[in-house]
């Protein structure tokens, strides 16, 4: 049994035109063949009665109200598998991003909003609100413990803000905040290979919820803070732990 037909009156989508104007080649958003490869390979298909093809079709038929009020935009992870599978390389995730951005900021999911605001408040950019002085303290504390309990690692070092280090290593704040021992295996690996690395006290937190919040200004602030931190130390690489 198929679903009952929904009667809608096709309109011109202001939203779709706006997004198409932003993208090179309009993000191919007008090229949908309705084949459904996007929807069949999307883990979010079916949640809240929505899927990527349906979302794009609703846009194409000008149903802006429905598209811009659907909570489904927070259930798509913008993982880009739909673009990868699509024969026309249609940028549906960008459409989702802009639909998120069209929500009044205060109406966006509180957890994502709160994580972004925490990151903005703190020079660490930690979504968990971790302060840099705590990070420095925790790292030092754990390092001492390791040296004491595992003498083979007596020479291991962890530096902060060391100018000219080759790698500026960022760290998800989950580690210093909730499971600092998880940093140790990483330090051991870096020490074993003789990697020239440093942590920084500015912009060290790897996570970035402002992008997920679709808040361009906040996202840009965070990226610029991180870029400046790495450049101020003159590091050659910004190293991600994943």
């Amino acid at each position: 049994m198929g679903e009952a037909a929904t009667v809608i009156l096709p309109k011109q989508s202001v939203f779709l035109s706006k997004v198409m104007d932003m993208l090179p080649e309009g993000g191919h958003l007008s090229m949908c063949l309705t084949c459904g490869l996007c929807a069949s390979g999307c883990p979010a298909s079916g949640l809240h009665d929505m899927d990527p093809r349906k979302f794009l079709r609703l846009c194409a038929l000008g149903q802006d109200e429905m598209v811009l009020s659907s909570p489904w935009v927070w259930m798509c992870t913008m993982c880009q598998r739909c673009v990868y599978a699509c024969p026309m390389a249609i940028d549906i995730p960008r459409l989702i991003y802009e639909a998120r951005a069209a929500w009044p900021r205060e109406d966006r999911p509180k957890g994502i909003l709160g994580s972004c605001d925490q990151a903005l408040k703190n020079e660490s950019n930690s979504a968990m609100g971790a302060r840099s002085e705590d990070f420095v303290f925790v790292a030092g504390d754990i390092l001492e413990e390791v040296k004491e309990a595992q003498p083979a690692w007596e020479d291991m070092q962890v530096s902060f803000n060391r100018p000219g280090a080759e790698y500026f290593l960022n760290q998800n704040s989950r580690e210093p905040v909730t499971e600092p021992d998880e940093m140790v295996p990483l330090w051991k690996i870096l020490h074993t290979v003789g990697c020239d690395w440093t942590y920084g006290t500015i912009g060290w937190a790897a996570e970035n919820y402002c992008m997920f919040l679709a808040d361009d200004a906040a996202w840009e602030t965070i990226v610029r803070n991180k870029v400046k931190a790495v450049e101020d130390l003159g590091c050659r690489y910004w190293l991600n732990t994943e």
């Binding site: 927070w74 992870t77 990868y84 509180k110 994502i112 997920f212």
Partner: peptide, 17 residues
């Protein structure tokens, strides 16, 4: 590159959904 997303991205873990 063709892998399925696990659902941990996009802010999902903090979204309340």
């Amino acid at each position: 590159s063709n892998n399925y997303c696990c659902g941990g991205g996009g802010g999902y873990l903090q979204s309340g959904y």
